[in-house]
Amino acid sequence: MIYFDNSATTRPYPEVIETYTTVAQRYFGNPSSLHGIGMEAERLLQQSRSLVARLLGVLPGEIVFTSGGTEGNNLAVKGTALQYRSRGRHIITTKIEHASVAQAFEQLEQLDFEVTYLPVDQRGIVSVEAVQRAIRSDTILVSVIHVNSETGAVQPVEEIGRLLRAHPKVLFHVDHVQGIGKVPLSLSAGDIDLCTMSGHKFHSVKGTGILFVRSGVQLGPLLSGGQQEHAYRSGTENLAGIVAMTKALRMTLENQDANIKHMRQLQTELFCFLRTIPEAVLNTTPEVSAPHIVNVSFPGVKPEVLVHALEEHGIYVSTKSACSSKTGGASGILLAMGLNEQTAGSAIRISLSAENTMEEVREFQRALRQVLPKLYEVTRLRK
């Protein structure tokens, strides 16, 4: 099996699975319980919080554990709107956000918030100047994805953060789900107030995530009923998942530089190969891309047909972001970049991890050379 769908989810490290199992069996107490078993679980929870904070260069009190990127994004976006709506009802985002951000903004529009959706250029990049022009006296939030989940385009979030220094009443949220472990980001240097991460994108188990909430920022909680996670997220903590995610984060960041270099080599090989295919349209711009994503269109070929054809060779890629892959039609991200309907509707995404190899990339090349002419022949016959 060749797994090239790592932007959808990664395979958990074996050590992470072992940690999860050990904690689930031995530290099963509720961290909120006052007895010894509960206090033991609470100590382990706080140790994990402190380690995550140290790895990210922030304070333990700024770490909120969540169930993943979708919850973290919703808490950051809606929580800010709820908390600061008396200050203003104008919020800013881009046209290339993940569905968990885009649909959160759509919901807020129904609650009488005004949203400015910033355009991107043909590379899929939003300009800092566009952010500057959009800010108003009643703006309370700017939310920008760090690494686009479909094209890999890296947004200038640190530059946007510096811009927002002049607007202290505007909070800055960054969706860092696709960037963690692939594109380094300093939460302090970027002047970021809220930052979302998801464990299963860096080889942890599903159902785990991190929301960084800068000290002094307040959020309106989405889940009520207890005081867990600084009262932002009521409910018994997923201790085994949190400890496992902490281990996965440590392992990922310890090897980050070597992993990035390796993925970049694989990505470069893919770019070179795809440029030799006359029908291929590269939607990922290497100069502004994260090292693990390649988005390419084969106009005239249905992407789901190509995905299944490659699967017959034991190769797994995807179409759009996993959260949107089952919805029909062209990619909204690619349309926002100015691609036409045919190109935007025929794209596949190849997403790598450090566990992939150059031999796997070359096996993908051999398989694509086999299946693509057959698919184009079928298309011509149908015409």
Rank of each mutant, 00 (worst) to 15 (best):
F4R: 02
S7D: 13
A8K: 09
A8M: 07
T9N: 00
T10A: 04
P12G: 02
P14W: 12
V16W: 13
V16R: 08
E18G: 02
T19Y: 12
T21G: 00
Q25M: 03
R26V: 06
G38C: 05
G38M: 08
L44P: 01
L44N: 05
V52W: 00
A53S: 07
V58M: 05
E62Q: 12
F65S: 07
L75S: 15
A76E: 12
V77L: 13
K78H: 05
G79H: 09
A81G: 08
A81D: 12
Y84S: 04
S86C: 04
H90L: 09
I91A: 15
A99G: 08
A104L: 02
E106C: 07
L108G: 11
L108W: 07
L111T: 04
D112G: 05
F113E: 04
F113R: 03
V120T: 13
V120Q: 03
V120A: 06
D121E: 15
V126E: 09
V126I: 14
A130V: 01
Q132L: 12
R133L: 09
D138L: 03
I145L: 08
I145K: 10
S149Y: 01
E150V: 01
V154Q: 03
Q155E: 09
P156C: 07
I160S: 07
I160D: 09
R162D: 14
R162F: 14
L163V: 00
A166T: 09
K169R: 11
L171R: 15
H173Q: 10
H173S: 04
H176L: 05
Q178V: 03
I180Y: 08
P184E: 15
P184H: 13
L185P: 03
L187G: 03
S188A: 08
D191R: 09
M197A: 11
H200I: 12
H203I: 02
V213A: 05
R214F: 06
R214M: 07
S215M: 02
L222M: 12
S224N: 08
G226P: 11
H230P: 00
S234E: 11
A240P: 04
A244G: 07
K247Y: 11
A248Q: 10
A248V: 09
R250N: 02
R250C: 00
M251A: 14
T252D: 11
L253T: 03
Q256S: 02
I260H: 12
K261D: 11
M263A: 07
Q265I: 00
L266H: 12
C272P: 01
T276W: 10
N283Q: 14
E287M: 00
S289N: 15
S289R: 01
P291K: 01
P291F: 05
F298T: 02
P299Q: 08
P303F: 11
L306W: 06
V307E: 13
V317N: 01
K320E: 01
K320S: 02
S325I: 12
K326T: 00
G329Q: 07
A330N: 03
G332V: 02
G332H: 15
N340F: 12
S346D: 07
S351Y: 04
S351T: 06
E360D: 08
E363R: 10
F364K: 01
V371T: 07
V371S: 03
T379K: 15
R380W: 15
R380E: 15
R382E: 15
K383A: 13
